[in-house]
Design a protein around this nucleic acid. Structure first.
Lengths: 193, 193
DNA sequence: AAATACACTTGATCTATATCAAGTGTATGC
DNA sequence: GCATACACTTGATATAGATCAAGTGTATTT
């Protein structure tokens, strides 16, 4: 549970044994059952959550009641309403568990504390955000530029695991296309080969 | 020229006088005339550019020859093909000057060096990226969820300066809508009030 | 084991927005 | 000062993808 976090961090920066031992103090583990909320729109997002097991989603709900997926997170990913977490404004996103899950919570205070106690963690988060930015940038350009089919094909290429693990209607919402359209697109692709 | 960078940084973190003096060593100033490229697709992006004067744009060109705006940057903004800069792969974006401009270039080596020499700069970039992430996230959700008119209205609210400063056809491209559509949308909005 | 809900498919129709085409006004260059 | 290009507008038409509606198969609940 905790070692997956440490191994994830050590992919990006090197911590010594003492720092590794310190880490544990800042995180609070939490279990979530399928469908359970980690965060509801309107509440302030008090934590960054590192997913050590399972699968969660971040999404918002529009006036019509339609859900729009923001991101999915499984083992090794961080999840939150980042803006709410950083600024303390009410969250616009909901976060809930798609599968039974386990997360490690890092509160705002501990987020500040950990970067002060272990300066290497500033670097860790800097690198994490760097990578996130690149990914978001790509998604944004795809969203603006690509046809529905191209969006799906691009995702299939960049995140085949996502296509496998996540229900098709949620993928459709993630891509910003109607579930019926995605169904037809997949049919077309299958027929072509 | 250089003080706008320092003042921008001091909005996020505090540097002592010695550190401020150090800073200068890592940046190379460059002037660009209107339409001049800072980066062309296919080349590796060797620098982060801090815009100290003027206005630049980052965009790519699809098979049909259509341009798609990624971001604009004027005084106080950083601009680059971030992925290319970080990983050394050829850039997918072009960057050029919309107005005569001045930038401060930070090379990859200096980017590493500066964060090592001035650890506070890790924090600066972490905060910079944090904020960027929130903005990109919003843009992405707007792109996926909103109608063309909502996209424009949201941008008008969040970035009125952008609407004023940047030609309308580029705004349309930035929002992922046809310039004709944007023209009609503005007409409708104007008629309603 | 029956009942209910859920994920996905398929078909018919509708609509927001793109595309094509022409025209106007304004800036830029020769 | 004339010409060329460029930014924007307006109208007519086309289309990708949404929406509406019904049906099928598979889980989940009782």
């Amino acid at each position: 549970m905790f070692d997956i976090l440490l191994s994830h961090i050590s992919e990006k920066v090197t911590l010594n044994e003492q720092e590794k031992a310190l880490m544990q103090n800042y995180f609070v583990p939490k279990r979530l059952r399928k469908r359970q909320y980690l965060l509801q729109e309107g509440n302030v997002c008090r934590n960054l959550a590192f997913v050590s097991k399972g699968l969660l989603r971040t999404y918002n709900v529009d006036d019509k009641g339609d859900e729009h997926m923001s991101i999915f997170g499984w083992e090794g990913w961080w999840i939150s309403d980042f803006n709410s977490f950083l600024t303390g404004v009410p969250a616009v996103f909901n976060i809930d568990a798609i599968e039974d899950s386990e997360v490690l919570l890092l509160s705002r205070e501990n987020y500040e504390a950990i970067t002060l106690a272990i300066p290497m963690m500033d670097r860790y988060f800097r690198i994490l955000y760097q990578n996130s930015l690149v990914t978001k940038e790509r998604r944004l350009m795809s969203s603006v530029t690509d046809t529905a089919e191209e969006k799906f094909l691009r995702l299939s290429q960049s995140n085949p695991d996502m296509i496998e693990r996540i229900p098709q209607n949620l993928i459709a919402s993630y891509l910003g296309i109607a579930p019926e359209t995605l169904s037809r697109i997949r049919k077309n692709i299958a027929m072509r080969k």
